[in-house]
Design a protein around this nucleic acid. Structure first.
Lengths: 325, 325
DNA sequence: GTGAAAGCGCTAACAG
DNA sequence: CTGTTAGCGCTTTCAC
């Protein structure tokens, strides 16, 4: 009732020193068996819980791992978080999830909070931003960048996806089907992933001697709404017979516009998505898409979190094209 | 380089007392402007971050809110977590997410960890379990039960969904379409939600004078796999012309079995899902489903977290049937 | 086998 | 305006 149960309150209750309580609770052999058991019993009864704050302050570190994601409704991020959360439970780690909504200021705040609680490591999808990391403040925390990479003076670890090959394959696949007017929607130049995916798309066309049409390329800060709006615009504009998406959010947004149009007018287009939510296999006879190995990505990230060495490592996984319909 | 930057280390660096540093950093007016600015500048340079542990230990509490969910790949839980995470950012709270996988022991551990870090509140979907809460230990933490309700001596707050009416409507809808053999898949009696949804299904039939067929009812601890397997079994068994799902996981699992069967054999069935992931509108001409107002649910939960009063409250939201196809 | 003291980072409450 | 002291809960170190 009156405040927290602490080793001191238990000690007073039992008329012994708080040190004996501490030892008894940590199964220290230097305590009479009778004493130890009495203490443990009483602690249980009183509902004692060890203070993580006190432990952290003593310099024992914390069991906290931070995860910064743009959002978590996108199935890719959801699956990633799910796998990470499970691994964390298995490792006795606590996962703090912050959603940045791809806003740099939100990211800054979230990072600061995680440093305040002395997170042992932070896995993050960097938001679009020109600045680099404040090396000063992240000195004590292991940072693992996911998918996107931001510059930083002190090298940070990263788990990234090599998707250029898959995107080029997607273009080749569409061309093989006879498409010449291929549109693209993706992130803009502010993101490393935006740059590389667009480049892969353009390379794919160039490799086959096809001229890219700037009107059919939409790039901007990525979001569901951006994907949806861009696709709607492209459909209104006409001309394109195929569409390639270069991002998770964008893909879902564009797909929603496509599905709406399909049920309105019945008009089809060759659609290549990005990421592979379960339902992609089920809609419109199956959506062709660039598949990213989420679970493995998450496992690699946790590996890096629990890794002993301090030196930064970069792990690269390969995306692959799944052709459907 | 050498350890954390603390107010003491800054004080030493500046040749002043640590209290002056403390005051300067908290914008206390009782500090010479010049001193204050010098301190703030130096703190910035050194990469000072306040220790959350020290603050917690002083009794200032924490900004931590715990969220316990069975998983987070299910779109319902994902949307819930997403909304809660956004609200938490807005309120300056940190959200720790633990996934229980509906395992009581995992839940116990997760709850203990959250108490250790002195979470201000915990929003949780209780796992199936016969025991009640350990009232002793949750005395200092606000517990908000979500969707399901577990008994406890000290009353806890809850945000739940009244879905009986929607489920009865679903049955009535199917009967109106001419269905007599209606199957049901849902959680078993261990869960409050399992009990009430099954009862609603049976009431729905009884209201229309239709006899429930025990062979067409599957109830067990709910999961994607359970839903998938039950649906597969029911299809193999034959007889049912319609299927009602009584749970998020179960619904997705059953739907995946249904979609597989549809593409294999083209055989249809009247399907009523539970929850409303975006893609339900897109597959098989649109899935009829029991829709739960997720975002509002999450907002209510955060309301309860930030509420001043200590007395337990129960908030009930109504589900509604969305008819499609 | 047990206890007393010190210190982790911070601020409230008193001195000056 | 600035400094000193004390104490939050815990364990390590050193007595006894």
């Amino acid at each position: 009732m009156s405040g927290r149960v602490t080793i001191k309150s238990i000690a007073k209750d039992l008329g012994i020193s708080h040190m004996t309580v501490s030892r008894a609770l940590s199964d220290n052999p230097n305590v009479l068996k009778a004493t130890r058991e009495a203490v443990q019993k009483r602690a249980q009864e009183l509902g004692y819980v060890k203070s993580a704050a006190a432990m952290a302050m003593r310099g024992d570190g914390t069991q906290i791992v931070g995860l910064l994601l743009p959002n978590i409704v996108n199935e890719f991020y959801a699956r990633f978080a799910n796998t990470m959360a499970q691994s964390c439970v298995a490792q006795g780690l606590q996962l703090i999830i912050h959603l940045t909504n791809d806003d740099y200021n939100v990211e800054r705040l979230a990072l600061e909070r995680l440093l305040e609680v002395q997170a042992a490591a932070v896995v993050m999808v960097p938001t679009p931003a020109q600045e680099s990391f404040d090396d000063q403040s992240i000195a004590n925390t292991r940072i693992i960048q996911l998918i996107r990479q931001r510059a930083s003076a002190t090298p940070t670890s990263a788990v990234i996806v090599e998707d250029s090959a898959a995107i080029e394959q997607a273009v080749a696949h569409l061309v093989r089907l006879g498409h010449k007017k291929i549109a693209y929607i993706g992130a803009d130049q502010a993101l490393s992933s935006g740059r590389s995916r667009l480049a892969a798309f353009q390379n794919g066309l160039a490799n086959l001697g096809i001229e890219a049409n700037a009107n059919l390329i939409r790039s901007a800060p990525p979001s569901f709404e951006m994907g949806r709006k861009s696709a709607t615009d492209l459909f209104a504009l006409g001309g394109a017979t195929a569409l390639v998406c270069g991002g998770f959010e964008v893909s879902n947004g564009a797909l929603s516009a496509y599905m709406d149009r399909l049920s309105d007018s019945g008009e089809r287009i060759a659609f290549v998505g990005y990421g592979d939510p379960a339902f992609y296999a089920w809609v419109d006879g199956g959506i062709t898409t660039v598949q990213i190995p989420v679970e493995e990505l998450a496992r690699r990230a946790v590996d890096m979190v629990t890794r002993k060495t301090d030196d930064a490592q970069t792990f690269t996984l390969r995306a692959n094209l799944v052709v459907r319909s």
